[in-house]
Design a protein around this nucleic acid. Structure first.
Lengths: 317, 317
DNA sequence: CTGAAAGCGCTTACAG
DNA sequence: CTGAAAGCGCTTACAG
């Protein structure tokens, strides 16, 4: 069923049908009603693809994240899907699984689909791929979320540095002397910035940086588990763990070794139902995911209007 | 940049360019190379939307789920996204938030986008909406996942009944006499079937059904928490909890009341990293999410070929 | 208030 | 091996 069929059934031209579909102009009330009735009776839905082609428009945006099953990214997704729905935008979804080639494939796919733009949490090895992102942002409006690359680009991020800095400073004020740190892969901007926050807070408070207290993992539960075993040998009195999965791994060690977490003050980046459930004394911040989602779509809209001011924003926690 | 621009630059017709883009026919090797070079140099990406319109094709499928942040549905999503990627299908995503009207809106949107079909985990109040789904499956191929409605339709589901039946039977064999049951909303097929499995297992093993041991919740953590407090007053020696969120709520009660879970055998439907982490002795099954994803896309493809045999499948656990 | 016609960016049967 | 032309399902400036 297409617009022609409706036109024939209603004894009008396709132009007239098009007008009532789009609530355009002035169509005689009577024929408008007749056409609407016929549309209804025949279960006709206009072909938006054809409309978009004709109007040179597109109301879909692409989004790419590295991991759907991680609650952190699922929350971001959720925010974006709901905000998009509010704005009558369609979401076309890609999941890179931290794989750069797959991410590349999705970007090409989305360009071919002529999406309005792409909102992307880049894979962990994207940080240094400046040329690639320069090139692709020439081809399509690109908004980074959560993870930066090594060049200022439009995007919205959390204030990783300040968040960690504040927590560590508090730990120190509470008298903690040996604060461990489980870092994420330093090819991810968020992992880097969190570590920097830790280092700077120590420095500003005149605590010597002890590299034995900093272990490097890869944001997975397993790595939190393994590093946890290791760092617990160092007699720490506090610890900052760089993401949610590693925190779960660390808590697992605590449980297995039957260590009472009263003795070690624990902090992590993201407050989340699960972690808080396991140990409610863990220090963390509530993440304004829906704000991140909202801002990222707003920035995309700005980019589309060639308004490039304030397109890089950091959300404080 | 469009196909015409490339044609002009290459001094050929658009037909020829189209042929090399699609790797069609026989184009002289020399001109093929020239055209490909020009395409590359100009960063030209064919407009898939226009191609699809012209070929009367579409390589995107719609998917609607009730909750992105629930790991259960996130896992289903993950499976579908990856399977779709393998098959070069695009995913356009909607999240109903258990809201029937929003679900309806997404379905209309997807029909207008002329997706190949829709894969959907329906909202909790969809069970009795037979007419609605009859109507929409007339308009677009529809594959239900995870949750059924009150009529046989194409879809892929887990064997809820048998899974619960088996667990309860084992509990009984182990000597459990008072097995509690935290049910989900009985407007969701999965919640119903799980309860039925419980009832039947009791019956077949000659244990009297005690309705005081069955409490009804709504699949949320809070409801698991509240019902947990209640059911623990009943001196149960085993309990089956109908989904992951309610299980977390129940475990929270256990922790708060400092109850040793040795005394109560606990089972839930879905094995999941988090729950197993909190209490590894909980009985549950590993969910073959990727199989569910794969089958649902296969069924969609069958439907598109008008092959309607075996379009309703149950995956055993 | 309404229609004929050109155009959106492609593909493809037909002809050469 | 290549091109001219019709067509995919719409929209819209133009004319009446």
């Amino acid at each position: 069923m297409k617009i022609q069929d409706i036109a024939r059934l209603a004894n009008v031209s396709v132009a007239t049908v098009s007008r009532v579909i789009n609530n355009n102009d002035n169509v005689r009330e009577e024929t408008k009603e007749r056409i609407n009735r016929i549309i209804k009776e025949n279960n006709y839905y206009p072909n938006v693809i054809a409309r978009n082609l004709s109007k040179n428009e597109n109301n879909t945006i692409g989004i790419i994240i590295p991991d759907i099953k991680n609650l952190y990214f699922a929350s971001i997704m959720d925010g974006i899907v709901n905000e998009a729905s509010r704005r009558n935008l369609n979401i076309i979804l890609g999941c890179s699984n931290e794989n750069f080639e797959l991410q590349e494939k999705y970007i090409e796919l989305f360009i071919e689909q002529r999406v309005k733009g792409i909102i992307i949490a880049v894979t962990q090895n994207s940080y240094t791929k400046i040329d690639f992102f320069d090139q692709t942002s020439l081809k399509i409006p690109l908004v980074l979320i959560d993870r930066k690359i090594d060049k200022q680009m439009p995007g919205v991020f959390f204030e990783n540095f300040h968040s960690v800095y504040g927590v560590i400073e508090k730990f120190i004020k509470y008298g903690k002397k040996k604060i461990g740190f489980l870092a994420g892969s330093q090819t991810i901007s968020t992992a880097k910035e969190r570590l920097e926050g830790y280092k700077k807070a120590l420095k500003d408070n005149e605590i010597k940086y002890d590299k034995k207290l900093v272990l490097y993992g890869d944001f997975t539960l397993e790595s939190g588990y393994n590093l946890g075993k290791e760092i617990l040998k160092r007699e720490i009195d506090g610890i900052y763990i760089s993401n949610n999965s590693m925190t779960l791994g660390f808590l697992k060690v605590l449980k297995e070794l039957n260590i009472n977490s009263e003795n070690i003050k624990i902090a992590t980046f993201e407050d989340n139902e699960i972690i808080r459930f396991i140990d409610e004394k863990i220090v963390s911040y509530n993440m304004p995911f829906s704000e991140l989602a909202k801002r990222s779509i707003e920035i995309l809209e700005s980019l589309l209007k060639n308004d490039t001011s304030d397109t890089t924003v950091e959300i404080s926690l």
